[in-house]
Design a binder for these strands. Sequence first.
DNA 1: GTCTATACCGAGATAGAC
DNA 2: GTCTATCTCGGTATAGAC
Lengths: 213, 213
Amino acid sequence: MNQSSNIKLSFKQKMMLEREAQIIQTVNGLLATKGYDTMTVDEIADTVGIAKASLYRHFPSKEALAVAALVNTMENGLAQIEALNQTTLSALNKLKTITQWAMRLKLNQQMPNLPSENSQLREHLLAHETYMDMLVNMSDSIGQWIEQAQADQQITTSVTPLCILYTLYAKACDPVLGFLKSSGLYEEEQIIEMVTSTCFDGIGHPAHYRLNE
Amino acid sequence: MNQSSNIKLSFKQKMMLEREAQIIQTVNGLLATKGYDTMTVDEIADTVGIAKASLYRHFPSKEALAVAALVNTMENGLAQIEALNQTTLSALNKLKTITQWAMRLKLNQQMPNLPSENSQLREHLLAHETYMDMLVNMSDSIGQWIEQAQADQQITTSVTPLCILYTLYAKACDPVLGFLKSSGLYEEEQIIEMVTSTCFDGIGHPAHYRLNE
DNA sequence: GTCTATACCGAGATAGAC
DNA sequence: GTCTATCTCGGTATAGAC
């Protein structure tokens, strides 16, 4: 794993990486739909189409599988953030864009459910240096956008930056997205629009008093 | 169970109801902290202080235990709603109050985590007539408040009532509450204030442009 | 109605052949 | 590196005595 920095890879090694990517995708989907506890290793193996014992040649445990999926999602998020930092978008629009990216993943059931408070998986994550580094990194970047947007008077200063950061993170697992989808009344983009609106504009103001846009 | 309508109860029956209330409280707490899958029946029995087999004299299965806890919480919620309907509060303030009631439960780890999408528990709940009746009931009541508040121009009409309803329901399991609490930076009431603000006012407007209060 | 002891099974993980 | 078969353990549920 993680040999992407090597220059030359044999055919077999490429196949290996391919398969691992396939496994991670599967785990991601199961983590998004069923959650860590409900998902079984048999299920992963069946979905990928290999034997369970073969899975364990790639990853040493169920937890390692979940961690790999979470790390992968985190990498993708950081790539999105880097790309946004190359643009000239306002801080507010960067915040909206990254939030919507997360919401689209969630809607398409590719955003792994974070483990709830009491979980060995959580302990494992906290001890995972790479993951924690990436999390700090991401929080730093988004935190800078938040402070910039506050300085530019684009977002409220009546709650702390930390509260705003958590609020945006929470959109990655917002059950409202799934509820609205399963109601069958709205298209995906409508749902994204509505939830973005409730998040940034709030529900407590008549529409025509909106300031930004 | 559910013999509260009977006039006369023997001492033994009272003890029985007392014990069941105690069990339900315990399940509620475990459901709130660990979730259905992670929580074990042994744990429930140990916490209550009786043998596992005795638990099964009161409730036929783990699922029944969870359902009883959920029904209990739902009853409490409906009682809150009834009480609010006896007041002269504005529709907006009724919405805020019931939302804050739910958030306080969550903060004190007494709000059971709803089972995620793929779960047998969810199936059981959908088949549970009493529970579903209460859920419809609750949604009707809150839905009326939402429409009233929209008619009074107290809340936005730029998203549908259904979206608002789901958004408020989601506050009952908002992870932001736990995050802010475990940061150790805020008192409980500050947290309630902040999350209420992000919900109703949104994060996308400078504070001094607030309209309602 | 409460207990101790146990049946039973699902799921994580491993052995060992190819 | 993949497979089939198996071990092991934890957790739901039950038996049967008091």
